[in-house]
Design a protein around this nucleic acid. Structure first.
Lengths: 357, 357
DNA sequence: TTTAGCACTCGAACACTTCAAGTGCTAAAA
DNA sequence: TTTTAGCACTTGAAGTGTTCGAGTGCTAAA
């Protein structure tokens, strides 16, 4: 199964077929690749080579007398070995910079913007993900007193995400007590993940709060659920409508299932969360994703990493025959920019413009 | 144009046609309604009546020799005058209670859950909206110090929504200065909407902050953008895939456009935000929405009101021939529950279960 | 005013034909 | 041994004609 089982000419032909298929969508025949490519041979030779490539599993034939279509394995080989690196133009890079910078702020917003951008730039569906995290901890608490029966609990997670929740205690409380609650939470619960919040710790906190122990136990419950929410992961999808322009999604039934999968989010989250700690681009083609409805699709995504931790991922979902070179380049460009932005909120790289004003 | 231009029999026939069309989707003929309805007349009579109803604009004929289909005006009359109120079963009400209560928390989450529920319960597409608001103000500020170059600004809006933003000041700062910043913001900016933040106020704040004035001016900019984001409105859509089961969306091109409109969100937000302060259900059929791609669709939505203020809206998008009775009842049920939940975070009404444990 | 009857219309469904693209194979050429 | 030209064959797409049935409008009688 080494790649050197393929002769140079076979590679060339395979690449020509994949390229042609990516462009036009239909099966490609022996003659048509003769035109676009300068191969010193005839269509008959190509036919022979194609037959062999099919036998080796790199091509498929929808039916006798149709041209060939790249198989999953064919795409895989193409992505791994044959792809030509697509260089983004400076204009494209500048566009990414400009649009992402406008949305600087919380990771959530950046990811949403990135998902949009990925969709617009590639003409496929853009996906942004905050993956399931095994053990988020709280790095800081704050409590904002509003009324005697109403305060807001603010939780800053170790990932930088901030969550807030309105809390309405059973008994009226005061500015001072709420402040003290925040102190207590900071004292006893910072650095713990959901599972580590056990009874002894809660008892300590309650004794710290003295008469206001009920307030504390209610707050702990809230913290617990918030941590749970943070663990769950999130996912934004944009540009689903782009997919409909590709004939592979013209089967309404299948498209409907795909839509459903995207809305459930679960499958895709698992997929991305489960791809280990690789911090470079992952390409899942067809059944590689183990999600049935995506057999005719490909999912490309790249994690967003900060200080060695994976904070999220951006990706592109499209037909199996997607323009991998372009998609890969776009995702690299986007993730570079995002990582620059979140690293220190500074200017993203590649910024050649003069500051205005 | 009064409704009394329609004889009792015409109404009956119109209702029968709409009902039949809602159920099966196709044009309905004179004979078929004779079976389901006990009218003391023959199909020929019905044909005559149908011809008149068509002339009056309540019915349409896709082509000669096809049955009739309700026109936009026909649906409108049906919704306004002929609809039978659908009573939700206690089982359905209990379901709403159970599922919504599990998601109690921020309005955002409740709305998302409600959108999901609306979609699942009706089998159409569910929509949840936080409308564009003309003048959101801040009711409370808080600032959380993390590191000398990093604090979090927390803004509690007059609507109850909480927004946070990581801020990285140019010069290192301290716990004390950040607290003082929060005080200053609370002192000078609470109760103001974005447009009311003017130079004199900023100058006051800066002099309050003394040597840390730059910190303040940066924070004011952040507050300004946050207020802008709050003004913008938001929208969650769920269950788009349901639509594909209805033949009216089998035209891929049109469906693609509808998808695009849903993703842009703008049109729908305008639609809902622009329907004035009515706090009961709105039904927009076909071209009534003024959004071209929705000519074959209907949008039903109901605002969520608290203390006389509109906080959001939940709605259902589906084909023109949607089961209005059911949709209306579902939305009423949902909004009642949501309003109960946000009123005081108390138990929703209709709660007959015993507390467990 | 209602109804039975009838001629007419039109799209859906189906069978049938044609067409072009593409293949595999064989035999000759390089 | 490899390549190529040529040819018979396959197959889906597209086009055509026909039938069928649901539904209509109209007329004349009840």
């Amino acid at each position: 199964m080494e790649e050197h089982e393929l002769s140079e000419r076979k590679k060339q032909i395979l690449k020509a077929i994949v390229d042609a298929h990516i462009e036009c969508g239909g099966p490609v025949g022996s003659k048509s690749i003769l035109q676009n490519q300068q191969l010193n041979c005839s269509s008959a030779t190509i036919r022979n080579e194609m037959a062999e490539l099919e036998e080796m599993g790199y091509l498929e034939q929808p039916h006798t007398s149709a041209g060939r279509v790249p198989s999953e394995r064919g795409y895989r080989f193409y992505v791994d070995s044959l792809i030509e690196h697509y260089a983004m133009t400076t204009a494209e890079i500048a566009q990414i910079n400009r649009l992402l910078r406008a949305k600087m702020g919380e990771l959530d917003q950046i990811l949403t913007a990135a998902s949009n951008l990925a969709s617009v730039l590639t003409n496929y569906t853009g996906i942004a993900i905050k993956p399931r995290l095994s053990s988020v901890t709280v790095s800081k608490f704050e409590a904002i007193f509003l009324e005697p029966e109403h305060y807001i609990l603010v939780v800053v997670a170790s990932t930088g995400t901030v969550k807030t929740k309105h809390v309405r205690p059973a008994a009226p409380t005061s500015q001072e007590v709420v402040s003290r609650l925040a102190e207590g939470l900071n004292l006893y619960l910072t650095g713990l993940c959901a599972e580590q919040i056990n009874l002894p710790i809660i008892i300590n906190l309650e004794s710290y709060m003295g008469a206001d122990a009920p307030l504390a136990s209610q707050a702990v419950k809230v913290v617990y659920t918030l941590l749970g929410e943070l663990d769950q992961g999130e996912m934004k999808v944009s540009g689903i409508n782009h997919l409909l322009q590709y004939p592979e999604y013209s089967d309404v039934g299948q498209f409907q299932e795909l839509l459903g999968t995207l809305e459930k989010k679960e499958d895709i989250l698992n997929l991305v969360s489960g791809t280990g700690n690789r911090d470079d681009v992952s390409v899942l083609i067809g059944s590689e994703s183990r999600v049935e409805v995506m057999n005719n699709s490909a999912l490309v995504f790249k994690p967003i990493v900060k200080d060695g931790k994976t904070l999220g991922a951006i990706g592109v979902l499209g037909p199996r025959r997607m323009d991998y070179a372009r998609v890969l380049a776009t995702l690299e460009g986007l993730s570079d920019n995002i990582e620059d932005i979140i690293r220190a909120g500074k200017q993203p790289r590649n910024e050649g413009e003069k500051p205005d004003g």
